[in-house]
């Protein structure tokens, strides 16, 4: 894998952009594709490292699962939070009709 150049097709970059909910203009597709190929080519260095019997580091601290009681706090912030909503109605976020 290290020696092969990464090649990404137009369909593939468009599929990834669609998953990320980003629209790429016709003039952007080639640029983003080239950047992604170059960066992935570089990132492939990780495959030259021997990781036989080595665990994954998810976070640098040991205890990353920390539990707390499932209790609602900061309820009083609702109005303040809604002030940043692009569109709101009667204390709720407003969105267009989902099922037509």
């Amino acid at each position: 894998m290290e020696n092969e150049k990464v090649q990404i097709s137009d369909e593939e970059i468009l599929h990834i952009a669609k998953l990320a909910r980003i629209k790429l203009g016709d003039n952007e597709i080639q640029d983003y594709k080239k950047n992604l190929e170059e960066i992935l080519d570089f990132a492939n260095i990780v495959n030259s490292v021997d990781t036989e019997n080595i665990g994954e580091t998810i976070g640098v601290n040991e205890n990353y699962n920390r539990f707390r009681a499932d209790v609602v706090t900061n309820k009083e912030m609702r109005d303040k939070l809604l002030q940043n909503a692009p569109s709101q109605d009667e204390g709720m976020f407003r969105i267009p009709k989902v099922i037509s």
């Binding site: 990781t51 080595i54 665990g55 580091t57």
Partner: peptide, 19 residues
């Protein structure tokens, strides 16, 4: 993170992070 590449990149990178 997409299916097909998750192991080759993301999971591998987390192992190299340990190294």
């Amino acid at each position: 993170l997409s299916s097909g590449y998750y192991d080759a990149y993301y999971k591998k990178a987390q192992k190299v992070r340990t190294v």
